[in-house]
Simulated assay, not measured.
Amino acid sequence: MAEDTVLDMGSSFMDPFKGLLLTYFMPESCYDEFFLSFNFLDVPCLKIVLSKGLGIGIILGSALVKLPQILKVVGAKSAEGLSFQTVILELLAITGTMAYSIANKFPFSSWGEALFLMLQTVTIGLLIQHYQGKTSRGVLFVVVFFGLLVLLLSPVTPMSVVTTMQASNMPAIIIARLIQAGTNFRNGHTGQLSAVSVFLLFAGSLARIFTTLQETGDTLMALTYVISSVCNGIIALQVLYYWNSSSERKKKKKKKKE
């Protein structure tokens, strides 16, 4: 009797949150396991909740992950150290992942950050062109990109094309990061590259390995995030390595202005 009372109290206490939890964090079987049976150590359910929580955290973080980069470029009125070719290749990888996930009807929590990263990466591409004195080319780039995106997401595009795009993500990511790493090496500094954005991208790609395997079981997507983590890690190491040289460079610029 007492046990039934406790169960009823637990159930009624969680009722206002039940819809939210079932929609975003867990299936009903796990809700029952946690809040009716009070078995909070159920490993399969813990994995699901951790994966869903990480996925939502990554998506929320992705809405701002490249904002420091955008603000840094706008504040400096310069895109020095940023490669437009890298932006193009990043967009290829991001768009491929998004189209592949939508076509396979994967849950939004497993790929949603791609949408926000895409919008921010397009903005960075436009800014690079603008600060190089090629604003009209930048506008054309935006128009062409979104035109191709609409075509890619339409039923006209065969699934084989979408799968091929996802498979091409790996070489695209590797080449994109090598171009950026090469630019940093030649310059001897990371220019307007934002350390905050770099480290957030690295952390996000690492977390995505787990969430992808847990929520989709798709090895192609998981392998893409493994490659992405390694490549983002290389750029993160460069940011740390060139940290002092970048600081000294900023001091010299200030002295020249004075």
Rank of each mutant, 00 (worst) to 15 (best):
R177L: 05
S83P: 11
G188S: 10
V196A: 12
Q129P: 02
K47P: 00
L115Y: 09
S62A: 15
L50G: 07
E3S: 03
G147M: 12
Q69I: 06
A176H: 03
V162N: 06
G57H: 03
A236Y: 01
T211N: 02
S228H: 10
Q238M: 12
N104S: 12
L178I: 13
K251I: 05
Q120F: 02
C231K: 00
L201G: 11
L153C: 07
Q129C: 12
V162R: 09
G233Y: 05
K77S: 13
K72D: 07
K255R: 10
G81D: 06
A76E: 08
F40Y: 15
S245K: 12
S101L: 01
R249V: 04
I59R: 00
V143W: 07
V87H: 00
V161Y: 11
I179F: 07
G133H: 04
A103F: 10
K52Y: 10
F199Q: 07
F202W: 13
A103M: 08
L220K: 03
S11V: 03
V239I: 10
M118H: 01
D42C: 08
E215R: 00
F116I: 05
P44F: 08
K66G: 07
G182R: 03
L237H: 04
N169A: 07
L82H: 02
L206Q: 05
F185A: 12
G53T: 15
S109G: 04
Q166G: 03
I209D: 02
L46S: 09
D4N: 14
K251D: 07
V226F: 12
I234M: 10
E33K: 14
T123D: 06
V139Q: 05
K105L: 09
T164C: 14
N184D: 15
I94A: 03
L151R: 08
M98E: 13
M159E: 12
M14Q: 10
A195I: 09
I209Q: 01
Q120R: 08
L82M: 14
I235N: 02
K255L: 14
A76L: 01
V6D: 03
T23Q: 12
V150Q: 09
S205K: 01
K251C: 01
D15H: 13
T183R: 10
A207S: 14
F84Q: 08
H189G: 09
R177Q: 13
T95R: 07
L41T: 10
